[in-house]
């Protein structure tokens, strides 16, 4: 539990850090989204949902957004990760990369709609220059993260059998 708390704190700190080496063209990948999706995938929908809500809440505190939005979006991403984990058997990293791309794009569209409600959205600039590039980056990094986790799990299992 303590190790998890440390991991979460480091993940959240790294997400906004100036040390983040994954920023490409000013676009920052959403590590919290990837972590929540994968957590839901391996630990189930309820755990995924609640961990997602907790991490989303902290992201909202650290962000300058006008509303606590991530608390909801990350809840649903964690929950969805759990459902996908239950329904799909050995789907492969490419499918997960595609799914992470999709949920990231959905999250981006949601933020765009929130900003539209507040009258500060820029169409199509926000979608073309923020939502889509971020989704691609999240999808690629999410696919790699899934590959690494499953590789490590396989290694551990083969060592014990």
């Amino acid at each position: 539990m303590f190790a998890w708390a440390i991991f979460v704190l480091l993940l959240l700190a790294f997400q906004g850090s100036i040390l983040n080496p994954f920023v490409i063209g000013g676009i920052r990948p959403d590590f919290v989204l990837i972590a929540v999706y994968l957590f839901g995938l391996f630990h189930g929908d309820i755990k995924g949902g609640f961990i997602g809500a907790a991490l989303g809440f902290i992201v909202d505190i650290l962000s300058a957004g006008p509303v606590y939005y991530n608390i909801f979006s990350k809840f649903f991403i964690g929950y969805l990760g759990g459902i996908i984990g239950r329904w799909l058997q050995n789907p492969g990293y490419l499918l997960h990369a595609g799914l992470i791309f999709t949920v990231s794009l959905l999250q981006g569209t949601g933020i765009f709609l929130v900003l539209m409600f507040f009258g500060v959205a820029r169409f199509p600039g926000d979608l073309v220059s923020i939502a889509i590039p971020q989704s691609i980056l999240d999808g690629v990094l999410g696919g790699i993260a899934y590959l690494l986790i499953t590789y490590r799990r396989r290694e551990t299992i083969s060592r014990w059998t």
Partner: peptide
């Protein structure tokens, strides 16, 4: 010491 964790807003700490 930090930037906004999302890409939607430009803020810094």
């Amino acid at each position: 010491i930090a930037k906004d964790p999302t890409n939607w807003y430009s803020s810094a700490v």
